[in-house]
Nucleic acid binder design. Sequence first.
DNA 1: TTGTAGGCGTTATCAG
DNA 2: CTGATAACGCCTACAA
Lengths: 341, 341
Amino acid sequence: MKAQRITMDDISKECGLSKMTVSRVLTGRGVVSAKTKALVLKACKRLKYEINTLASNLSSNRSGFIGIATPFEGLIGSNYFYEIIKGFQLVLKESAYDYALFDTLQDSFNDGIKLAKLFHQRKVDGLLVVAPHTNDHFLNTLADLRVPLVVVGENQPSKSICMVSCDDARGITLLCQHLISLGHRRIAYVGGPKDLSSARRREEAYVNFCHVKGMDIPEGFIQPGDYTMRSGRTAGLALLTSKPTPTAIIAANDLVAYGVMESARQLNLQIPHDISIAGFDDLPTASERCPSLTTIHQPICEMAQMGASLLQDALKAGLIPSGQTQMKVSLVVRESTAKRN
Amino acid sequence: MKAQRITMDDISKECGLSKMTVSRVLTGRGVVSAKTKALVLKACKRLKYEINTLASNLSSNRSGFIGIATPFEGLIGSNYFYEIIKGFQLVLKESAYDYALFDTLQDSFNDGIKLAKLFHQRKVDGLLVVAPHTNDHFLNTLADLRVPLVVVGENQPSKSICMVSCDDARGITLLCQHLISLGHRRIAYVGGPKDLSSARRREEAYVNFCHVKGMDIPEGFIQPGDYTMRSGRTAGLALLTSKPTPTAIIAANDLVAYGVMESARQLNLQIPHDISIAGFDDLPTASERCPSLTTIHQPICEMAQMGASLLQDALKAGLIPSGQTQMKVSLVVRESTAKRN
DNA sequence: TTGTAGGCGTTATCAG
DNA sequence: CTGATAACGCCTACAA
């Protein structure tokens, strides 16, 4: 009944070698002569041997899993997340790591319950944290636990944590300059979630820019948003139906910008003739819209690759990854912005 | 140096019981007196004991992981996938299972190499396969391996596989009837990827409907698409700039419909005045667009819940899940369709 | 470059 | 209802 699986013992006997030598060949750790190696590999193939990862895990006390932790709500279904995953995969697919997905919004995560489970029970080898909220308490817990960890897509207050993000402030400044150069003076802003550091820095940059240029920010020109299309639509309606009316709107990200565009449509306003609209992210869809969206290009996939590489290197070296990386952003001018008329 | 972790042995000694009894309490398998149980649990809490899943895995020969296998390209970044994950999570979050993500488009997956790894090496307990391509050879391999497996979102040719999908044909028929009742006779169709069973069934339903109604399908009225917005835009441009011009367009899914809407905008056509457009899926964004999209509601999240439940029940019973479930769909009339003018 | 001994922490089996 | 003993299959450390 029990289809007795082939084990390392079988291979070692087949080859007249010790289990240890077989193990060395398979893990790549340690030195083995080319001849022995070939012998072992041939035997594995002949006997259709497959290493039992579970046993290996217990012995080495490592799971071979990288955890990807992310707030599911809103993020998982977005192109942004797709780019991130693509980047991770580019780096990890050649490695022996698989990845497991964890929702940071689950109560148990921030409670530390899930986390403890991950590290003490599952022995997750490392963690890639995507776009954590700044009130995500668990990050500091992890830093304390000295767990290999890289944060991608947000800047973290705790400076001991390794992090890859982009220059949010620079991006918004570029957008402001672009709109100013087109003659706009009444530029409104739709923000992002207050518990994301990126959203806060983007909004600050907008406020700073206006301040430096001596531009007043009329009441109501800063609308709240939450990085979703729906919030953009609500904010857009508010902005475009009250006085003073902006001639340009900067959205904290592309999804919000899409929502603002929908609101303009709803009001029968022409983009960019009646209102200029700009976003932030440069999602693949930004160029597919009509009109296409002026936005800030953020190298999302590259950020993810960088994050995964940093983690992988640290794991290889047995270290905790560290250091803050900020990627460059660039302005992409498309059809949704034009001279103020 | 080595922070000696607490093990089951420590707990058993602390309580003056055997490891086995402790194990029984923790796993819930086997019978233990209430008094003993309380004693053990208290000791675990006091010593901050956490079970070592790796050791447990080796002993029981199960990983406690459910694999989620899906073609990454395009799907992961979509609202559709978000709904699916939401459904899975609703079911699995109370269970002890974690989930690992696997890309079925990786060569190694269909090769069977990755699969073998999953089952012989990682001992993944079960697999939830999201929207597999019909040429995904690996499904039959799995059926042969007698691995617990549920396919969600597509119908599979191999009838021995457990599957949860929706009534695609019925959905398209409902859309056709709706448009006919609005006076449309020149109804065009933009399809989906040929290697998805859903796409094929939807297109067949359209063709069938036209046939039954005695409506000719003019050359070029069936445009290819691939479930992306970009393909919808291309197809829309083609349809709306040639003769005969359709008065209504059915898209194989919502994303394609969005693309068709963009193409109409590009041509300065009013929706629904100049052209009626309908989709399929009823993504959350379908109601947030302007105009909002007439579409077929598919209970995506519920399908995922059903799939996860079927898998979980089968795992609990030690069986291979089986049976085909087809969920009902419904027509959601919104602003993007109107009487032919 | 290869081998030996021992242990990783849990669960299964079977007896009491 | 509880306990003793033996796996589970590999890896670490050290020895040869």
